[in-house]
Design a protein around this nucleic acid. Structure first.
Lengths: 194, 194
DNA sequence: CCAATATTTCAGAAAATTCTGAAATTTCGG
DNA sequence: CCGAAATTTCAGAATTTTCTGAAATATTGG
């Protein structure tokens, strides 16, 4: 491995971290390297810096492309493929969340919907189905939130995140200001009192 | 594997899904089984239903305990260990997020902080450090948001998630209502115009 | 077109992980 | 305490994943 120490530390860490995700060491290292690099890199650059085989890099890049995590580009009068990550880190986050949802949540939701259609044949199955329904509803809530928030432009997203749970305070304020006292909606807070 | 079809479908799916996480098939299956089960199960129960070795179950349960994902309990006049998942699915989510943060984010933040202290020895290292700083700041924002939201009770958390980006609307409303026109704070929206 | 260059594919080697059975250790009722 | 029951440990077998080198395929400047 042929990298400045500071870069190497990061690349090695991401290689190890990859295993905690569904990603292998080389893929993690390639991504880390591209993320830190100012200039786009071609496959041979990556081979030299990471010290892995050309074919391994080829497969790694293919996987990263399948994840939409790298951008392929070309330099004038150079037929080699150059790869880079988006400059905007928020774009990276959005892609990551999107792709993980696609691979992990969506198939699970499909399965849950299927299983929830079936008729339980025993008390045991009935209970299992109830549990699956809880999970289904939870995922629905989370993905709904995500679908909503994902549309915000970055500035507003950051604003929202910075606010954190302080939003809650504003909600309470809103409730107090705009809900007609005695109406159905305003009873929520009363309920807490009991 | 000796399970009602509906349960088996879910257990097999979670087994496969486990690989996408850092968790192995058996651990995924054990967790799925416990999640669906009304009654706590002992190790031998799990062996029978999943058809894996006793030692494999032992190691799987140990791992799930390390993740705080299962609860160990005992039945009167039975010395065997019985395992279950929390009834409250939100408790499960909280634990999962907490543990993943502990294993993935925290070590990465430690590394980033260390590397950001060092003096870059070249333009390349300087750029790499800038990129790492972006990541560091991003994680700080996200974990800050999480730390904040994590404290909410479930009812309010659900409320917040249901609202999604509509929060934004309320924020704008708040701005319009309470910010003194011409003050520093009220200029945020003006900036967007240019 | 074609030859040089670039990239991908893929079979099998290497490495890592998962799983098992047997043995060791722990626990606790009597 | 003892011994039966329960659990854990662990060496190595089985399986899966990762990685490589060689060969095949694709691309493009001239």
């Amino acid at each position: 491995m042929n990298l400045p120490p500071l870069v190497q530390t990061f690349v090695l860490h991401f290689g190890e971290m990859g295993s905690r995700w569904g990603i292998n060491r080389t893929v993690g290292q390639i991504y880390a390297l591209l993320y830190l690099s100012k200039e786009p890199l071609n496959a041979e650059d990556i081979v030299e810096r990471l010290g892995v085989s050309r074919s391994n890099v080829s497969m790694g890049l293919k996987e990263l492309q399948a994840w939409n995590l790298v951008r392929l580009q070309h330099k004038p009068s150079d037929r080699r493929d150059y790869f880079s990550t988006p400059d905007d880190i928020w774009q990276i986050v959005r892609t990551l969340v999107e792709e993980r949802k696609k691979r992990e949540i969506d198939p699970t939701m499909t399965l849950l919907r299927e299983v929830l259609m079936q008729e339980p044949a025993s008390a045991e199955e009935r209970h299992a189905q109830d549990r699956m329904r809880e999970m289904h509803d939870l995922f629905e809530l989370l993905t709904g939130w995500y679908a909503d928030v994902q549309r915000l432009d970055t500035e507003r997203l950051v604003q929202l995140l910075t606010l954190g749970s302080k939003v809650q305070k504003i909600l309470e304020m809103k409730d107090r200001l705009f809900v007609v006292p005695g109406s159905k909606k305003s009873r929520r807070d009363d309920a807490k009192e009991k």
